[in-house]
Simulated assay, not measured.
Amino acid sequence: MTTHQDYGLKTPGSEVARAFAERIRGKTILVTGVSPKSIGSATVLNLASQGPGLLILASRTEARLREVAAQIAEKYPDTRVEIVILDLGSQQSVRQAAVDVAALTDKLDILINNAGVMVTSRKATPEGIEQQFGTNHIGPFLFTNLLLPLLRKAAESNPPGATRIVSLSSAGHRLSPIRFSDYNLEGKPVPPEEDHVKPLQGAFAKCAPDGYNGIVAYAQSKTANILFTVYLQKHLTKFGIAAYTLHPGTIQTDLSRDQNDELTAQFYKVAPYWKTPDEGSATTLVAALDPALDDAKGLYLVDCQLAEPAPHTRDSISADRLWKLSEDLVGEKFSLRG
């Protein structure tokens, strides 16, 4: 149970930040995927309003980061803001960004993995991984693990559960489990338990000429966000670090820039209410800040409240299997056992 059971679909993130101001004040917080008029920018602006000690903005485009940083400086001139260039689709960029973060601070109280992509045509990361899986999961997997020493340092002086890792998923996770047998969506056969939900409806079912279905690829990556959180919860509680994931709601942002009109119309059918970026940041902020979650049994939030994700995201065996696959794809082992 959350602290504010009255929070819901239309709760603004600014209200959440004010309610949990004591969990922000003086803290070091990093948010990925920060660009103007996005959930990320709304999230950092709301955090900045309550006096964090250091707010780190991370994203691919320096000009966009500086635009949001300037907005914060104008509204909240006493808030220290730093920017870090981070392309989650490039493991080299992720590794450099982790080095850059460590040069700014020796501790990290809250990490918000907000960044993500959604595409309808086949693309790959420099490492040859399907772009949505590579950017939405593998990048955050590597970045989070590289920052764990800073999170563990913060947890030494924070109350248990106040140090948090928050990863944005999506209701779209319900459309597909992890396709372990074909995570690059190359048309390889998969067993029934790895296949996407059938039949997909309308524009969601349409594939590119090469057979690539961007909705299925996106859904797989969003399932990965939840299974990643399952694994983190299992292994980080002993260090005083909590992990949560969430569906922020349907928001008109640059995430949808690759969609055609038909696909956008399909989304309007399944999600009649579209949140503002401020409303879209609310569930993220509850996940990152609400102390009541320390005593709650849950990992996934929707509209500021705990909710149940699809059954295929709650399987600890799949979480373990995804962790190993992710280690293989980044070429590095990460032990959370000691």
Rank of each mutant, 00 (worst) to 15 (best):
V302E: 11
R257C: 09
T237W: 05
Y212V: 04
H247L: 07
D254T: 07
T284S: 10
T253F: 01
Y231D: 07
A242P: 00
N225A: 14
K234M: 07
A292Q: 14
Q266Y: 09
K234A: 10
T253S: 08
T223V: 10
A224G: 03
T245N: 07
E308I: 12
A310Q: 13
K275D: 01
L306G: 01
Q252W: 11
K297Y: 07
S281Q: 08
L289R: 02
L232G: 02
T245K: 02
P291W: 05
Y244N: 00
T283G: 03
F228M: 13
H247F: 08
L263R: 12
S221C: 06
A288P: 01
Y218L: 08
S281M: 11
G240D: 09
Y273A: 11
L236A: 03
S256F: 14
P277M: 12
A307V: 10
L263A: 13
T229G: 07
S221I: 02
D290Q: 05
E308H: 13
Q259W: 15
T245I: 06
N213L: 12
L285C: 12
N225V: 04
D278S: 10
I226E: 00
P309G: 03
L255P: 06
L246A: 14
P311C: 13
L232K: 03
L293A: 07
N260S: 08
L306T: 03
S256M: 15
L285F: 12
F228I: 03
A265W: 09
A310H: 07
P309R: 01
Y212T: 05
Q266A: 15
V286R: 00
L263H: 09
W274P: 02
D294W: 01
L227P: 00
D261S: 13
H312Y: 13
A271D: 09
A243T: 04
